[in-house]
């Protein structure tokens, strides 16, 4: 199932944590290949290793053993600076608790990756404006996180993830803090991003959410239990909610 053209290629990746004297085997040999434009949901109970896998895919952590090729480049041996650059240029993150900077406007939050990419103020502004418009928040650019609903905050986070034009967006339980209606809205955005060619990797423990993905990888005890493709369900936001969500 692995091919050299894969965007993400993990080959027998293991991860061992040392917690005092105890060795925790978070990943016990995971091989996974994700093509460009795929929408993958990684499922599993807590402690199954799905978060560790996500961290390694997201270049936040390095595998203990095994290889990880991101867009054809070996990244498991890169240093902290090089990994930061990968996160900046190739990856985008969406978290369960949004992780927006408080007391900071939406557009400033979205600009953050571009700041570290070294773009000038005007370019940063243009790109961020476009990204916010793309998630339907063109009219809330100067709102602060505490002035926005959970769904809106998560959409700001998605805008931040996609503003630097990444190849992959990694979403760790993006709907975990949202109600079901808002969850559908967020999933609709992910599907739309996927349609435009961005690879989306989603970690969730909710089967309802995994239904929107075209491929479901189930983890258990640090190994992949199953890897199946499915016809994804289209996420159709409720019309009333969509306007309340702030479409201009």
């Amino acid at each position: 199932m692995s091919s050299s053209s894969a965007l993400l290629l993990l080959d027998d990746v293991t991860k061992v944590y040392h917690m005092g004297d105890v060795e925790v085997h978070a990943l016990r040999g995971v091989s996974l290949s994700v093509e460009e434009g795929e929408f993958v949901a990684i499922m599993g109970a807590s402690g199954s290793g799905k978060s560790t896998l996500m961290n390694i895919i997201g270049c936040l952590d390095r595998p203990t053993r095994g290889r990880y090729l991101l867009a054809g480049e070996e990244v498991s041996t890169l240093d902290r600076n090089a990994l930061a650059e990968k996160r900046n240029r190739t990856l985008g993150f969406v978290f369960q608790n949004f992780n927006l900077l408080s007391r900071t406007s939406a557009i400033e939050n979205v600009e953050l990756p571009l700041l570290y990419a070294g773009l000038h103020t005007r370019e940063r502004h243009e790109h961020s404006r476009a990204a916010l418009a793309r998630v339907g928040l063109g009219d809330r650019m100067h709102h602060h996180p505490n002035q926005m609903s959970g769904g809106q905050q998560q959409r700001v986070a998605i805008a931040r993830a996609l503003v630097a034009n990444p190849k992959v967006i990694l979403a760790d339980e993006p709907t975990g803090n949202l109600d079901s209606v808002t969850s559908v809205e967020v999933m609709a955005i992910f599907q739309e991003l996927c349609d435009s060619g961005i690879t989306v990797v989603l970690v969730t423990h909710e089967p309802d959410i995994a239904r929107y993905a075209a491929r479901v990888v189930v983890m258990r005890d640090g190994r992949i239990r199953s890897d199946s493709r499915q016809e994804p369900q289209r996420a159709v936001p409720a019309p009333a909610e969509a306007t309340a969500g702030g479409e201009p």
Binding site: R80, A84, R87, N99
Partner: peptide, 14 residues
């Protein structure tokens, strides 16, 4: 947390 977010979006240690 803020430092974590900054690092996740590409801030280098320096």
């Amino acid at each position: 947390r803020e430092i974590g977010v900054r690092m996740a979006v590409g801030a280098k240690p320096r």
